[in-house]
Design a protein around this nucleic acid. Structure first.
Lengths: 141, 141
DNA sequence: ATACGTGCAAAAGCTTTGCGCGTCC
DNA sequence: GGACGCGCAAAGCTTTTGCACGTAT
């Protein structure tokens, strides 16, 4: 979405091995688990290379980057359950005007090995400021 | 949810100001924005105190911690859209056996100032290993 | 007195980046 | 030879933690 791959991207040995290893793993791994696995086949590879190639593979559409919880937390003065929409450009977060989907979790009972605790729905988009900026940039090019 | 607040938690000056400032902000702030705002009223407060008090306020149920995207990325060898379920205890991530809800974004058109790009649904729960561990711990106590 | 909270500074994770060298076209 | 990619190491950024000093009960 927006990123043009016009440069010649070579499928290097490192890149190929990283892709192969990701495809092998069922549980979605963090970068450092990928690094550990790839290192068994390419002992001299560096962690930086892994990160760089994960980015490239995402841009190529070969793999998907999951942006899950973790660091970079945010806080909400309202404790009531609701969803959010986040600007992919500047990181701004607002409430999403949509009612909680309480029945969603019912669909999972019996079909997953997990004990379900809850769910979180996050929309992504462009906030007005970033949308304007992007359109101006597109008009200029 | 597991955390018992049995210790006497005092409402200190810092804690109160942090809470007041969060309640004032509409866009859900990251910790360091809260820090900057609080510092205007309490110039000698430390960032560590802000983090510690945000934790406390979450446990008290006064505020909500949003676990959004950001660092701690994970990767998926399958580029096709699907949802995930994450173990809150060990961080394991699996696919959620639920079909994509493509119509969700339609509900937002006209009700948000954002240009919507997509959405992400994440379930939280306990994976089998962690569920067993937790039940054993509960039985022991 | 004692438990809780704070400020400060250091450490800890995870991720990104600068640099010089290699390698492929 | 020029663009791309690599390994290495350093830096960055957010969050956590250890410690000694307050402070309220």
């Amino acid at each position: 979405m927006g990123v043009e791959i016009d440069k010649k991207t070579r499928m290097t040995r490192q890149r190929r091995v990283i892709l192969e290893e990701i495809r092998k793993i069922n549980n979605h791994p963090a970068a450092d688990e990928i690094y550990e696995r790839v290192r068994k086949r390419l002992p001299r590879i560096s962690l930086g290379t892994v990160y760089r190639n994960l980015d490239v593979l995402c841009e190529l559409g070969e793999i998907q980057r999951l942006e899950l919880s973790g660091a970079m937390k945010r806080y909400d003065g309202v404790a009531k359950k609701h969803y959010h929409i986040r600007c992919v450009c500047c990181g701004r977060v607002d409430d999403a005007p949509i009612a909680p989907l309480n029945e969603l979790e019912d669909d999972l009972y019996g079909t997953t090995v997990y004990e379900i605790i809850g769910h979180n729905l996050e929309f992504t988009g462009l906030c007005p400021q970033c949308a304007i900026a992007r359109h101006q940039r597109q008009a200029a090019s």
